[in-house]
Write a protein that binds this DNA or RNA. Structure first.
Lengths: 144, 144
DNA sequence: TTGCGTGCAAAGGTTTTGCATGGCA
DNA sequence: TGCCATGCAAAACCTTTGCACGCAA
């Protein structure tokens, strides 16, 4: 009998390939579900939004893409290009300009250890994003 | 003539008082709009959710309460009692059971300072959530 | 009396779910 | 052939808006 784990089979389908290819092609830009729907509609390859939601969920769970909740709008998704390396550091996302900063810093390593030791919580660096304001936007908005 | 600014008159109404009193009574805990609705419904003092939304908006604009957009759920509100409370700590969200943990820890304060000093990034602790696995779920899922 | 406050209903938007059909393996 | 994937429709949510009426000042 086939191992009936709680995981999906991950069939190789046209829609699945198209969605991932599109995200990869965007490089470090991020898109909303609606933008993805529009993209394929323009190409006359309409893909149901339900399908898109379900693929994004899978890709997000597996760490292939990142998910952001910028402002109060809908969620944004972005390909986690350098997959491996990014598991070992955190990400800073500027709420103003949307820039994503990869934070390579020993302090962050300490955080993970500290929170695990003292608070019994295992941080998932893949999904954790620090929101805030980047240096450029801090300068621009000095006197609002 | 009365200054006709874009601001409202802020009448002193029963509903307005009840809502603020409730938030104050919660101390540093935060609640969603729905929780507020339920609270008053239980007391047989039902207040329309529209009214609650509008009061929260005013209180938020004036800085009387804080607003969180934790995880992907609905917004949370909390009385800005002493200026301290939740803006000076982070939140941990368990990906397994969904529990939200308030992390009171000096180390986190250091993070903010460090990231600002060394990486010129101002972290928004209100928005930032650490995702991971809580103590209970770590135990439960030891051997999956 | 004036005009904001209230709350019902309805609309708007995002995301999820039910279900029958289609397609991968 | 057995499931999973797909996608339409509908539901489930959260939040906002329109409107008539009530109430504070």
């Amino acid at each position: 009998m086939p191992m009936k784990t709680a995981r999906s089979a991950n069939y190789n389908t046209l829609q699945g390939r198209l969605i991932l290819d599109y995200l990869v092609s965007l490089g470090d830009r991020h898109v909303t579900v609606n933008q993805i729907v529009q993209h394929f509609r323009k190409q006359n390859i309409p893909i149901g939004q339900t399908t898109i939601y379900r693929h994004l969920e899978k890709l997000y769970s597996s760490g292939t893409i990142r998910r952001y909740t910028l402002s109060e709008e809908s969620a944004c998704y972005q390909y986690a290009s350098n997959g491996k390396a990014c598991q070992e550091h955190f990400h800073l996302k500027c709420e103003q300009c949307g820039e994503l900063i990869h934070l390579e810093c020993d302090l962050l390593d300490e955080i993970q250890k500290h929170v695990y030791k003292n608070h019994s919580f295992r941080i998932n660096a893949l999904k954790t994003v620090f929101y805030g304001t980047c240096a450029r936007c801090l300068k621009d908005g000095d006197t609002p």
